[in-house]
Amino acid sequence: MAAGKMHADELDIDEALVRRLLAARFPEWAGLPIERFPSAGTVNALFRLGEDMSVRLPRIPGGVEDVEKEHRWISRLAPHLPVPVPVVLGKGTPTEEYPWPWSVHRWLDGENPAPETLTDPVALAGDLAAFITALQAIDTDGGPRAARTRPLVTQDEECRHALAELDGLVDIPAATAAWEATLEAPNWSAPPVWVHADLMPGNLLTSGGRLSAVIDFATTGIGDPACDMIVAWYLLPAHAREAFRAALGVDDATWTRGRGWALSMALIQLPYYKDTNPAIAAQARHVIGEVLAERTHDLSAS
């Protein structure tokens, strides 16, 4: 769970504020129990509302446009997907006290998976591949551009700045070499497909070790499918990673770009969140370790 504020422009959000917002916009729900849900999320604050709803509010200006995207597109995508996704029940309006739109969703049960607690990672890899395959098959007409579908080289300056701040925390020469290797992959040139673009463990729910839901579609849109490969390094062990790739039939260039996105995200997250969000920082360390181990294995096998 995040420890205090993570961003300089983050708003103060608590249960009392949520109740006042509900009373103004959805008075029929204002009397229900409200409890802040412990989450490592970095963009939105999440509260459980009663037994079967949640309230989700942007913490920072960068999350505001995502509210409209989710309200417009989740209902279009949901019928085509093999697992439940958030059902939007209502859209909150800005007030003098809280300046942005916000959402009420149907609550989805499940647990966030973690690499060290997976009971059947190969089966979970198959579930993830099935979700991505179904998402990519949806008609892209009118779809918005997704986050993380621009050329990977656009991350270079920020990655190198992060590397300069990570001395003593990671193997800088190895991480730099791994990052530079991903930049050699050709860019995506085929038609865009639907992607979630943020398949981190915190946006996945499992039950009995299997994928039970996918949440947080703020970054979704159309573009390069490589960005949805990040879950391979954020969650899956090496043998399940291979099963995941085989199930998707991913080519070398897309896989390499996916590894680059996972590495770039982790490199940038680690120095930014190491003091304010221990869960995200630990996750970033894990990803960097998995990428470097995989690269060492590939180099020794070549």
Rank of each mutant, 00 (worst) to 15 (best):
G110L: 02
A181I: 05
L118I: 08
V291Y: 11
D275T: 15
H7T: 05
R145T: 15
V153E: 15
P61T: 08
D109W: 08
R145P: 00
I268M: 11
A40C: 10
A177D: 15
T149Q: 09
K91C: 12
V122E: 08
N203P: 12
K274P: 00
L166N: 02
E116H: 14
A16F: 02
E184G: 07
D275Q: 11
L49Y: 04
T296G: 01
E35K: 07
L267K: 05
S302V: 13
D66W: 12
A40T: 10
E242N: 12
T154F: 07
T220S: 15
I268K: 15
A123F: 05
D251Q: 10
W107T: 05
W102F: 12
H80A: 14
W102H: 10
R285W: 09
A190W: 07
V231A: 10
A279D: 12
I34D: 03
P79V: 03
Y272F: 15
P151A: 08
R257G: 08
W179T: 01
G223N: 04
W233R: 12
P121S: 04
F217M: 10
V83P: 09
W255Q: 09
T276M: 08
V153H: 14
E10I: 02
A181Y: 01
A24W: 10
L204K: 02
L57H: 03
D109C: 08
F131L: 04
L124F: 01
A147S: 15
G63M: 08
D109G: 14
G126V: 03
D198E: 02
V170L: 01
E35V: 12
V55A: 13
W102E: 02
A232W: 06
Q155V: 09
H297P: 05
R145D: 13
T256W: 06
L81R: 05
D198A: 03
N277H: 00
V55G: 01
P94D: 04
G92R: 10
R285A: 14
D52P: 04
V104R: 03
R72I: 09
A2V: 15
S212R: 13
E15T: 12
E158F: 08
P115A: 03
V88Q: 10
L199P: 08
A279F: 11
A284T: 02
H80S: 11
R148I: 05
D198P: 03
G202W: 03
E96H: 06
V43P: 02
